[in-house]
Amino acid sequence: MENNHLLLEVKNLKTHFFLDEGTVRALDGVDFVIKRGQTLGVVGESGCGKSVTARSILRIVPQPGRIVDGEIMLYLPAQSNHSTLTNVVNLTRLNPRGTQIRSIRGCRIALVPQEPMTSLSPVHTLGNQIVEAIVLHQEVSQAEAREKAIYMLDLVGMPQPSRTIDRYPHELSGGMRQRGMIAMALSCHPSLLIADEPTTALDVTTEAQILKLMQRLQQELGMAIMFITHNLGVVARMTEHVIVMYMGKVVEEADVDTIFHNPKHPYTQALLKSIPRLGQRTRERRRLESISGSVPDPYSIPKGCSFHPRCSQRIVGLCDQEEPPNIEIGPGHKTRCVLYR
C-alpha cells in the first residue's frame, strides 16, 4: 500500500487564537506530511507558527487558541494480526482531554521542548518526572519504571544515571536537563519526536552534543523527528526534508538540498541570503542581506500574499490582491508564489 510509510499527514490545519484585541490566525492552512523515520525540518522566523503546529499536533494548544479547521491524520502501525490496513486516527477529532489523545501524547508522539531550564518541574526530581511518563504508558511497576528511566538516561549519555535520577532540575546544567527531557520523550519509543527548538537555549558546544545525540538516537531507535528551528545551519545538518513557514502558512517545501541550492520562494531566498558563509568574502564582496521589515502584526495579516510587503520581487496589483496558489515545481518541491505560475 502506498500509505505504508506515511506517519503523519497535516491537511489545511488552521489554529486561531481568539484574543480581546482580535483573532490571531497562527496557523492559516498548513499542509505537510511526515514519513516514518524521516526528519522533517520546520523553518521560519519567530511567530510564524512553528511551535503552534507542534502543539496542534499534540492537541495542547494553549487557551484561547483553538484548531478551527483541518485534519491531522496519524497513521499507526497495523496491529500484527488484525488487518493489513494501517490504523488511522484524525487527531483534530479527538477530545483534547480525552483518553485517546492522552494515550498518543508522550507515547506515539513525544515533545522535546524549547526551554530545558523551565520545562521540568522545579519541585520534583528528574527521576520522578521520567518514571511518571513510563508508568503512564507502559504496564510496568514503579521499580521497573525506575530501571527503565536509568537505562534511558544512560542511553542519552547522562553521566552517572543512577545518581542523576534523584537530582532536582536546578542541580543540573542546561545540557543535562535537555538530555533528561530527551530521555523522558523517548522513554516510550515514540514514532514521532517533535523537537521544538531543542537547542536554542543552549550554548554552541552543548548544542552540537545534543544534535549529535539526536542523530544517533534516531539511527538506533528509528523514529521520525519533526525538527523545529530557526537555525538554517541546524536544518542543513539534521534534516532530510524541509518546510519553510511564514505567517501561519507553508510557503515552500522541498528536500534539504533543493531548499539550500535551488530555493524558489522569495522568502526562502531571502532567508538563505541572510546567513553568512565562510569564504564568501574572498570571491565576491557582498553585504549580508537582511529581510526588510519584520513579521507583520499578527492581528492584521496583509491581503494577498502575506509576504508581499517585504518581498523584493512583488508584482503590484497581483501579490497584494490574490492569495498565491501552492504550485508544484518539481518532484516533492512546492511553493506558494505567483512567480512560478
Binding site: 481568539f18 492537541r59 494548544v61 487557551q63 487558541g65 483553538r66 484548531i67 478551527v68 479547521d69 483541518g70 483534530t92 477529532r93 477530545n95 483534547p96 482531554r97
Partner: peptide
Amino acid sequence: MANVDNNDMDM
C-alpha cells in the same frame, strides 16, 4: 480548546 465545528467557523 474545542473540537472543530461549524459554530467556530461562523465566529
